[in-house]
Design a protein around this nucleic acid. Structure first.
Lengths: 237, 237
DNA sequence: CGCCCAGTTGAGGACACTCAATAGCGGTGG
DNA sequence: CCACCGCTATTGAGTGTCCTCAACTGGGCG
């Protein structure tokens, strides 16, 4: 049993009879009998902020499902600066590269406390032999990742700093209902998401606060006016 | 049988016994007997520059393999400007969205003369029932697309105009062997690829020419010094 | 209490964008 | 064959935005 990550904490092992993964979209449609085909343990992993699930170039034989928390996928530029390529949240899958025998393409690093299912690819392969529908689910995940990548390219690399930050806030807040208070990330990370420096992000957020689009709730939590953000994101005004 | 594109020219129909697709990676490993399961025609499409294979939001029931030429995948910003999200060349697959019942996510527009295979998703589904290996191939394609998207995000949206253009030229020239002359695209398209205006791209290219990194071969064809480009791309000097 | 780190704010400069004019190329028609 | 047209690429001048560097603030924690 090789370590998946230096920082990973093993919560235990399960055959998913109790695991939330059982209800994850990935395994929807599987029947009780199918779980009998699982001969390798599916593991729970807990990560704290800044801890890595895997590193770029590592070869892994697990794919992962995020049950809670937020993970960033990071790539690096020749000059050493980092670029956040995507965020994963609740019920997203990552590490799909392992399914096609590729090394991981990013550093996967927790931004918050995270709970993760680690599924051996052998399990996937064995299950999918009896349940081709599983392939369909995997392809859906892949497509989601691709669509997300395209969004990041178009939304977060074009327009003014104001617009990019507004779009980022919109996307971060869209999972929350109403104008629910939203915990932000470090300015450095936010900069790496939208291709700006920490100072510029800080300035943009400060301005949004001054204009009342954001309202401070302490410890980097903001309540935000989604309508106003939408206007700014689409560059009117 | 609904039209796939306004501009598409049907070259004919085939069951792939003669088609180059037969040798495409996608169908590698299939045996003669497998082709008997193909009950719907696989079609050849030819496109000229500026013609669209499909449009964003269209629902299609074909996926495509590019046998020759270059296609751009385009998305649009609220302000109407376009952003090229990826380029496809020789033997790349596109329109995979159709496999998961999603509308196409981009405009797919030919940049050069193109030859394309249009494969009904019904064919894929029927084939894959007997040949699960086909799923593996599809996942590889999906992974390639995702890796490409990440490269575009990190390479073409960061750094100075010089660097971005240099990286773009490198990537465009990497399929050519040696320092083979390279046909460029319109400045407008190149700008949409690296997130710059046409003027800035033009200036960057002009400067590279002045420095001898590019050598003009007429009609927008350049011979380029890959070593010098690499230095510039990695921001030394 | 004071340290440390993250966030904020300021000043100055570099870079890319905008607007506008010019040049170069290919095609068309006289 | 040449003149003209349209389009794209190129070049220039001026401006705005963001980056860089640096100082300052404030909260958390030993």
């Amino acid at each position: 049993m090789q370590p998946i990550s230096l920082h990973a904490i093993w919560l235990g092992e399960t055959k998913c009879h109790h695991c939330a993964m059982r209800h994850s979209v990935l395994f929807a449609g599987l029947e009780e009998a199918d779980f009998g085909h699982i001969h390798q343990p599916i593991k729970d992993i807990a990560l704290g902020p800044q801890e890595a699930l895997y590193r770029m170039q590592e070869r892994g034989n697990h794919l992962f499902t995020l049950r809670g928390g937020v993970i960033k996928l990071v790539q690096y530029l020749p000059d050493g600066s980092q670029r956040i390529v995507r965020l994963l949240k609740d019920s997203d899958a990552l590490g799909l590269e392992a399914l096609v025998e590729q090394p991981y393409q990013h550093d996967a690093i927790a931004l918050t406390d995270c709970e993760i299912c680690a599924i051996p690819i052998a399990v996937i392969k064995s299950l999918s032999q009896h349940r081709p529908r599983l392939y369909q689910e995997l392809m859906v995940r892949w497509q989601q990742a691709l669509a997300e990548a395209d969004i990041w390219l178009t939304q977060f690399t074009t327009g003014t700093a104001r617009q990019r930050v507004a779009r980022l806030l919109l996307r971060l807040s869209c999972c929350a209902e109403g104008n629910h208070p939203l915990p932000l990330f470090g300015r450095e990370d936010m900069g790496a998401m939208v291709g700006l420096t920490t100072e510029t992000v800080s300035r943009a957020i400060a301005e949004l606060r001054r204009q009342g689009v954001l309202r401070d709730r302490g410890s980097n939590i903001q309540e935000c006016d989604r309508e106003a953000l939408r206007r700014i994101a689409d560059s009117e005004e």
